[in-house]
Design a binder for these strands. Structure first.
Lengths: 151, 151
DNA sequence: TCATGTGAGTTCCATTTTGGAACCTAGATA
DNA sequence: TATCTAGGTTCCAAAATGGAACTCACATGA
């Protein structure tokens, strides 16, 4: 009976486990958040997040290797790179927004939210809700049933 | 200019950061997943996840202290406890399901998904989608605009 | 009575990760 | 020539994690 290791997670069948193998490390999701919100340069991310430089360096490499960030030169001599979110990363935005709404309810704080998700056209605040695309019904823990397909 | 520490995250204004302060540790979300899927006893979680016992012990305490798990005795002499997800934890299920759908698209694998989220009444598979409750429109990275409210 | 088993942890030590600070490199600028 | 800038890397100490054994309270069986 093998012991599970953190580094085995990418090969798990469970999608939650695979997500955590990429984003479940300290700082990783916060770095992705910053790149999604427009902060793309090493020093800028490091200054905002105030994490150590080599953890940042490590996380950027891992996010790039998992296809969530792309390293693009923004100037020659000396060549310097920016980290751009890929489509896979951008597709995580709705998940992040659902997460934000959850935390606002269940991990409240006095401090103001530093970011707001607005409708791009109307500039009105949005209120994320997870629905079932098949029926249009809201998904809640009450409306769903978890089926264990193995074991 | 203070350096940010992992232990400062619970006090951040950013909801993503607060979420990660609770669930962004190694194994924590996978433990919560198991309790949500009905595995509630120390040894059962440990056997399924195959993580070390004192990491599990630590995570259960942290999840309890953040109000995501409740420790309930299921027998006397000797008294033994189960870890039950609270409403806050159950409310995370839709977020987890959105995460699952994201990983199925962007972190594909050959292995079958060990869990499926079915409609509790119809027992049909569900297809999670994040919409704006105000307009009913799907939320994607294209449809939203992130406004920075501070700094 | 004694040995064995069970569930839920705790303790101890080795290995990995992370934190903190300084250093390096290629050019730009003064 | 000296200093600055952006994007790292290197080094060492501190903290977290992995692995295994141990504890505790009771139950069970011989």
């Amino acid at each position: 009976m093998r012991r599970m290791k953190w580094t085995d997670l990418p090969n798990e069948g469970c999608s939650v486990a695979r997500t955590m193998s990429v984003l479940g490390d300290r700082w990783t999701l916060l770095i992705l958040r910053d790149t999604l919100f427009g902060i793309r340069r090493f020093d800028d991310i490091q200054k905002r997040l105030k994490i150590t430089r080599h953890v940042l360096s490590d996380r950027l490499k891992r996010l790039e290797s998992h296809g969530l960030l792309e390293r693009k030169p923004y100037q020659e001599r000396p060549v310097r790179y920016e980290y751009h979110p890929t489509q896979a990363a951008r597709d995580f935005v709705p998940v992040m927004q659902a997460m934000t709404a959850w935390a606002q309810t269940h991990l409240p704080t006095e401090k103001p939210e530093p970011y707001r998700f607005l409708d791009r056209e109307t500039r009105q605040p949005t209120d994320p809700k997870v629905i079932d695309a098949n029926t249009g019904a809201e998904i809640t823990s009450k409306s769903i049933w978890v089926e264990t397909t193995r074991r």
